[in-house]
Computed example of a mutant assay.
Amino acid sequence: MSEVSLTLKTDSLLDLPAGASYHVRSGRANLDVSKGAEAGTIVVYASCDSLQRLLEYYERQVGEYKAALDSRTEEVKEEKKPMCVWWKILTALTAGLFAGIVITIKIKKQNGKE
C-alpha cells in the first residue's frame, strides 16, 4: 500500500504564486496541493496508479458482464420467438376449427328445416 503525507503551513500555501503547487509522491501515490482559482480556496488532488489500474480492471469486467447479459438476452428473445409463432398458428387453427363447426351446424339446421 502506498501512502503520502504532506504537512504545510497556511502562510506558505497562501504565498504560492498562481499556477504553482506543492507535490509529493510515494510509490504509486501522488498528491498535489495548490491555491484555487477563487480567493480563499485550496485544491487538493490525490491519485494512485494502482487505483487507476483497479478501476480499469473493473470497467473491463463490467463491459464483459454487459456483453454477456446482452447476448443472453438475445438468446432468450430468440427462444421466445418460435413459441410465439406456434402460439399464433395454434390460435388460428382453433378459431378455424370452431368456425367450421358453427358453420356446419347452421347448414345442417337449415337443410333440416327445408
Rank of each mutant, 00 (worst) to 15 (best):
S2R: 00
V4Q: 05
V4P: 06
S5Y: 05
L8G: 04
L8W: 04
D11E: 13
D11N: 11
L13V: 01
D15E: 12
D15G: 09
P17T: 06
A18N: 03
G19R: 05
S21T: 03
S21E: 09
S21P: 02
Y22D: 00
H23F: 08
R25L: 07
R28F: 06
R28H: 13
L31V: 02
D32N: 11
D32S: 10
V33R: 03
S34I: 08
S34V: 00
A37G: 08
A39G: 04
G40Y: 00
G40W: 01
I42R: 01
V44Y: 02
Y45T: 15
A46Q: 03
S47A: 08
S50A: 09
Q52D: 08
L54C: 14
L54V: 09
L54M: 10
L55S: 13
L55T: 08
Y57F: 09
Y58S: 08
V62F: 00
Y65C: 04
K66E: 02
A67G: 07
A67T: 00
A68S: 01
D70P: 09
D70S: 00
T73I: 11
E74W: 00
E75I: 00
E75N: 07
K80C: 12
K80W: 11
P82I: 05
M83R: 13
C84W: 13
V85P: 10
W87D: 14
I89T: 12
I89V: 13
I89C: 13
I89M: 09
L93H: 12
L93M: 13
L93C: 12
T94S: 14
T94H: 15
A95M: 12
G96S: 11
G96K: 08
F98C: 15
G100Q: 07
I103Y: 10
I103W: 10
T104E: 14
T104L: 07
K108P: 04
K108N: 12
Q110Y: 14
Q110T: 11
N111Y: 13
N111F: 10
K113N: 14
E114F: 09
